[in-house]
Simulated assay, not measured.
Amino acid sequence: MTINHEKCIACGNCVAVCPMNAIYVDTTINRARIDDDACVECGTCFRGMSTENLNPKIARTIRMAAKALRFRMEPEPDVCPTSAIEMNELEMPRLIRQIFSDPVVEHTSTGIKGRGTEEVKTNDVRLRVDTDEVGYTIEFGRPGVGVMFSDIQIMTRELAFLGVKFEKNNPITHLLADESMGNLRPDILNEKILSAIVEIKTDINMVEKVLSTVKMVNLEIDTVTAIGISTRCTDEGDDVNLRPLLEKLGYSNHRAKTNMGLGRRTNKIILTQTEKK
């Protein structure tokens, strides 16, 4: 993102809109600026404000006159009055910020918009996670904190050491230069994004190790994490494996989602397609 200083009148409305606190008014030049290191290219300032396309010179003159006469001429708080915020062309590795932070940008690696996959929402037909397996989503950076890829790599390295299976269709997995070691592409490590999700799978016996590893890494990295955990219920709809284990480990758990109604794997066409994969 960029702010056109030929248009900006330093009204400051964009400062409050930025979820990363990356925009500020530089009083030395009386214009708004963007901290490029803090900006994650999410586009919130560009899309989240109305524009009026006022003439910047006229708007500045009126504001100066109003100041001299001891009254204020301020635009509505959700408006950039002169359309000064512009979306510039980005190249890699900077482009990776926009791909992971702007919800309207499609991941070329997965063909979807967003930070992750469908997770286990279609599990009853795709059998991504079976009854003796556990799926995990480890989310970084939300709400409004952001995360460096270098911090995500600390987590993926520790998880790789445990021997977890990274979800193939996840955007972060596509950025792993060495999946067995959990190493991300070196050119993106210094880039910051709004949030990301690492998706993995293990057998039921690995739950304690994974949870303790995530907890340990969370103390080392400069962001926040949230972990989701799921499994496949029995045909009767019961969770006979994961729930007792979480209770034994001291976690209070609640069934947050139950995905059902997509059909059964006895469907011959679906079954054949799944087995081919």
Rank of each mutant, 00 (worst) to 15 (best):
S109F: 07
D37A: 11
E89V: 05
V147K: 04
E106R: 12
N183A: 01
P19E: 11
I221D: 10
K57A: 15
F140Q: 06
G144P: 00
M181G: 00
I227K: 09
N55L: 02
A65E: 15
I34H: 06
A65Y: 15
C45S: 08
L90W: 14
H174E: 15
D37F: 10
G135T: 03
F71G: 00
I96R: 04
A226T: 11
A22D: 10
M73Y: 13
N253T: 15
P56T: 07
K209M: 09
T82C: 08
S101D: 03
L95M: 04
V25H: 08
F46L: 07
A256D: 14
G250F: 07
L246Y: 14
R94H: 05
C8Q: 02
P93Q: 01
V79H: 09
G163Y: 14
V134C: 04
P81V: 05
L95A: 09
G111M: 01
T110W: 05
E6A: 03
E167A: 11
I221G: 09
H174R: 14
C8M: 06
E236A: 11
I193F: 00
A256T: 10
I269A: 11
E86G: 00
T82R: 03
R70G: 08
G182C: 00
H107M: 07
C80S: 14
E52R: 04
K57R: 12
D235E: 13
L69I: 07
E133H: 05
R255S: 14
E199A: 09
K67F: 12
T173G: 09
G135K: 01
R63F: 00
M155V: 10
R60W: 13
M87I: 06
R126H: 10
L245T: 11
V207Y: 14
